[in-house]
Design a binder for these strands. Structure first.
Lengths: 149, 149
DNA sequence: CTAATCAGTTGGAATGATTCCAAGTTGCAA
DNA sequence: TTGCAACTTGGAATCATTCCAACTGATTAG
């Protein structure tokens, strides 16, 4: 079930939006709430379905717009696996993704700084990377997703 | 310009196809030739355009089919960046990809075994990964793609 | 208190990569 | 030569995403 944002979360959301020159709207609040209520890397369509539970009139285009805005403001990350529908992730700490072959479920994998650094070190001179994406693909014996706030 | 496959290349292609229960056809030969003649990670459409130079009647569906077959036989790798058109890469050694923001060009980045191992080590118990994809995204000051066979 | 403006929202149409399908082709085997 | 099975082909269908023009709602200027 989707709760409303608490004070702290709403503040953080508004601050990030304002920093990017954007406003806090009811739709954006609803979409953001969906993302942090259940951090299971939902697709746009899943976000859409869940957001409609609290805001039945919302349109799919708005969900796309909101998510695009969040990405631009650095509030969430896009997660792509091959050409499957894009998923969204509110975990901003550096991490990799593991996609379970059997279920399609995506898990966050913590990425220690030294591993991140060893990765950066493989870039030859002249290559400057702002974004590194790491995704594993295989079988997870854990059936439950890792608990998240 | 696209050459025909040399003896060694054709043998390798046929062996891999046969191992996967597939046959060597003129279309598959043409598509494979495109991939190894210019290892610049072409999209399906680019492969299609180039293949038509030597085999004007070939259809786009066939290019899709051939590439799918090659992937299944382990002859080439798919390279996806966000939701852009899938690219194809005949480099089978473990490597990462760097996508140049400005040009869209994709470069292979060598992946030393120790870095690959440090990556594997971040997976918690219960997660077994067959495939690891690593992609960088940023600016490359080198304008020319690295020379390849 | 209006009017004007402007960002945001909406539904539906358009786009574009990919997949699907049914018909045609080819090479080999009985 | 007939039959079969794999492969190829063109076009239609799919589906995530983007685009667009009209609508809404809040804020500012007169």
């Amino acid at each position: 079930m989707i709760q409303n944002l608490n004070e702290h979360e709403r503040e953080k959301l508004m601050a990030s939006l304002n920093k990017g020159g954007q406003k806090l709207t009811p739709q954006r609040e609803a979409v953001f709430s969906v993302l942090i209520s259940k951090r299971d890397h939902p697709t746009v369509d899943e976000v859409f379905q869940r957001a409609r539970e609290t805001m039945p009139g919302m349109s799919l285009a708005t969900v796309y717009n909101c998510l695009e805005t969040f990405v631009a403001c650095g509030l969430v990350r896009q997660v792509n696996h091959e050409r499957e529908p894009t998923r969204y992730c509110p975990n901003l700490a550096p991490h990799a993704h593991f996609r379970d072959q059997a279920t399609g479920r995506v898990h966050d994998i913590e990425l220690p700084p030294e591993v991140l650094n060893s990765l950066r070190s493989i870039l030859p001179p002249g290559f400057n990377s702002e974004v590194i994406e790491i995704s594993f693909h295989g079988q997870a014996s854990t059936t439950e997703p890792p608990p998240h706030a």
